[in-house]
Amino acid sequence: MTHAQRINDALRRLPAWPVYALAAGWAAWLFWLGLTGGLGPEPINALERAYGEVALQLLIAGLVVTPLRRWTGVSLLKYRRALGLSAFFFVVAHVAVWAVLDLQSLSRVGAELAKRPHITIGFAAFLLLVPLAVTSNNASLRRLGAAAWRRLHRLTYPAVLLGGLHYVWLVKGFPLEPFLYLAAIIALLGVRIGWPRLRAALA
């Protein structure tokens, strides 16, 4: 038995629900830190950014699943839905903190979207994720059919790319972290989209 087979055997015994529990627990912990001063002198901005970063990390983790299985044989497919829905949960939390706690007025949301391009592309990423979250269930898969469901869920690609651009555009100066996220997203999208086409062309 190979190492990949041993890992897959162990993973088959592990359910996906702990991913949701960890996501909810981490979101609650970050919120508690914000309430108690653990996020520094600007807790709302820090909480907003922390939720957005976790969302982006989870979306990137979802992109890793297929290349990991292709190149190592280790399959995390059973956790991909949990990663995606947890990412959407953090995106919703990120948007909620921005709209309710930061702007403190839902009427200002439209004005901010029109005025600030980085918010516009971030909100576009959020809207692209909504149909994916709504259809991330077996009933939708059966209703849409596997082929249509897979086509719909390719919206993940532009959504995560827009999310990465939103993060780069958001920060002041040139800190390394947002650019590393964007580089990872571009590389993974290249692997997910370009590699199968290259293999088909060379076959």
Rank of each mutant, 00 (worst) to 15 (best):
L56P: 01
H94D: 02
L76A: 08
R12Y: 06
L152N: 10
A16R: 09
L59C: 09
R108D: 07
L152A: 08
A61W: 02
H166P: 15
G34I: 04
L152W: 03
W32R: 14
L14E: 11
L56N: 00
W17E: 06
E53K: 11
M1H: 14
P18R: 04
L198A: 08
V92N: 06
A46C: 13
L141D: 01
A139N: 10
V54Q: 09
L77W: 06
G37P: 14
A93V: 09
A27L: 08
Q104K: 11
L68E: 08
T2F: 03
W169L: 03
R49C: 07
A124T: 06
I119P: 05
F90K: 12
A27I: 04
A146Y: 13
R143M: 13
I193M: 09
T120I: 10
Y167F: 02
W26A: 15
R13E: 14
P41C: 04
N138H: 12
Q5E: 15
R197V: 12
L76N: 09
Y20L: 05
D9W: 08
S86F: 07
L35F: 07
G73E: 12
A16L: 11
L188V: 05
E53D: 10
A183P: 01
G73Q: 11
L129H: 00
L68M: 14
V97K: 01
H3T: 13
A125H: 01
S136Q: 10
L77I: 11
H118M: 15
V64N: 04
Q104D: 15
F89V: 10
D102E: 07
G62Y: 00
P15V: 13
P67L: 02
F126G: 06
A93Y: 05
V64P: 04
T156K: 03
L39K: 07
A16N: 09
S75A: 11
W98D: 06
Y20E: 02
L101H: 06
G34P: 01
L170A: 09
G110K: 05
H3M: 15
L58S: 04
P15Q: 11
L11Y: 03
L182S: 02
A183Q: 01
G73V: 14
V168D: 03
V109S: 09
W17Y: 07
F31N: 07
R6H: 13
A50D: 11
S75L: 04
L33I: 13
H166E: 01
W29H: 14
A203K: 09
R197H: 14
A24L: 10
A99P: 14
A10R: 12
S107V: 10
A125G: 10
I193W: 03
L161K: 03
A23V: 07
A46F: 01
A184S: 06
L47Y: 01
G52W: 00
P67E: 02
Q104H: 13
L202R: 12
L170Q: 11
S140T: 08
T2S: 09
F174S: 14
K115F: 07
L11D: 04
V64F: 06
T156D: 03
H3N: 12
G38W: 04
N8T: 11
R150M: 11
A28W: 15
R116Y: 03
G145I: 02
Q104V: 15
Q57L: 15
P131A: 05
L83V: 14
W17L: 13
L144T: 00
G84N: 05
A201N: 06
L132P: 02
W149I: 04
